[in-house]
Design a protein around this nucleic acid. Structure first.
Lengths: 155, 155
DNA sequence: ATCCGTGCAAATACTTTGCATTTAC
DNA sequence: GTAAATGCAAAGTATTTGCACGGAT
C-alpha cells in the first residue's frame, strides 16, 4: 500500500505541527512521485507550479519535518544534490551508474538473500528502505568497451 | 598488495603530469590511510602538517587527477563532506551504520553471489572497489530496543 | 623554455538559519 | 491569542574555477 498525502497530514497533526498550503502541496508531490528520485530543487519547482511563492527554505523545512516523522529520507547518491523520497514499505533499492548517473530500481526480493546473510553474519540490519550500489550500467560498459577497442586500433 | 605512493607517482608521470611536493605528500597520505575514509579537509590538514602552505584547491585538483587515473574514488556516504580513498583490489566493502557511523568491513566473497546476480539480471557491474550499505549496526539496534522498552515503561 | 601546478580569492552549488510577518489552531 | 510556519535574505559547507606567478621537466 502506498503512502498517501493524508497519512503525512495526520502524522504532522499528531506531532503538533500545522497543515499549511505549502505542506499540503509538498506531501502531494512526494506521494505522487512514488519511486521517483526528487531533488529539493525539483520539489520546489513542482510546488511553485501548483501554488506560487513557495520558498526553498520552506521546502527544506517541510522535508526535514517529514524526515523527523520517518516519512521522508534524504539520501546522497554520488555527487551533487541529494534526493528526497518517501520511506515506503515496498522497499526497493538502486543500482546507480557512476558514469551516467542512471539509477536502476531493484526489487527487495533480489537482494533479500544477501541482506539475510549480512544480518546473520554481522548482526547488521541493512536499511531496507534505501540502499544504493555504485557501479557501471550496461550502456556505459558497452561504451567503455567501444572506446578501448578504438584506442587499441590507434596504437 | 597495497597501493604504494610510488605507483601513483608513476601513473602521474605516465600521464604527462608532474610530481610536485604537494602531490608527493598527498599520495603518501592516501597510501598510509589505507582503508580509512578521509575527507578533503582531513587530507588538507595532514598535508599541511607535513608541508605547510598547501591549499585546498591543490588537494582537490590532485585528488581529481588521481581519480582520473583510477587510483582514487570520491564517494558520498550520507550528508556532509565526501570521502576520498584509494581504489584497492576489490578486497572488501563497508556496512555503514546510519546511527553511529561505524563501518564494518565485509570480505568480497560474502557479497559476490549478490553481485553476480545483479550482473546477470540487470547487466549492471557493481563497483567492486567500493561499496557501502547503509543500515543499523548491532550495538545501535540493541540501544534502540532498550530505548523503546524504556519509553514503553513510561507510558 | 615550455607548460603544468600552485596559492589566492572569488564563484558555485546545496542546504541551513535569523528575523519580521503571517497564519493555523 | 499563541505558537508555528513562511518568505526573504544572508550565512554556512563542500567543491570548483580564474588568474598570475612559480616550478618541474
Amino acid at each position: 500500500m502506498e503512502i498517501q498525502a493524508e497519512d503525512m497530514h495526520e502524522a504532522l497533526r499528531k506531532a503538533g505541527l500545522r497543515i499549511t498550503l505549502a505542506r499540503r502541496v509538498i506531501c502531494r508531490i512526494l506521494a505522487d512521485a512514488d519511486e521517483e528520485h526528487l531533488t529539493a530543487a525539483e520539489i520546489l519547482d513542482r510546488a511553485n507550479n501548483v501554488a506560487g511563492g513557495v520558498d526553498q527554505s520552506t521546502v527544506y523545512r517541510t522535508l526535514e519535518a517529514l524526515a523527523e516523522l520517518n516519512y521522508v529520507q534524504h539520501v546522497h547518491i554520488g555527487h551533487g544534490a541529494g534526493f528526497f523520497h518517501l520511506r515506503g514499505d515496498h522497499a526497493h533499492h538502486h543500482l546507480v551508474c557512476e558514469v551516467c548517473g542512471t539509477a536502476i530500481n531493484v526489487p527487495y526480493e533480489d537482494l533479500e538473500p544477501a541482506f539475510a546473510s549480512l544480518r546473520d553474519k554481522y548482526g547488521f540490519m541493512p536499511d531496507s528502505t534505501h540502499f544504493a550500489i555504485l557501479g557501471h550500467c550496461q550502456d556505459c560498459r558497452e561504451t567503455e568497451e567501444t572506446k578501448s577497442s578504438v584506442a587499441n586500433d590507434l596504437l
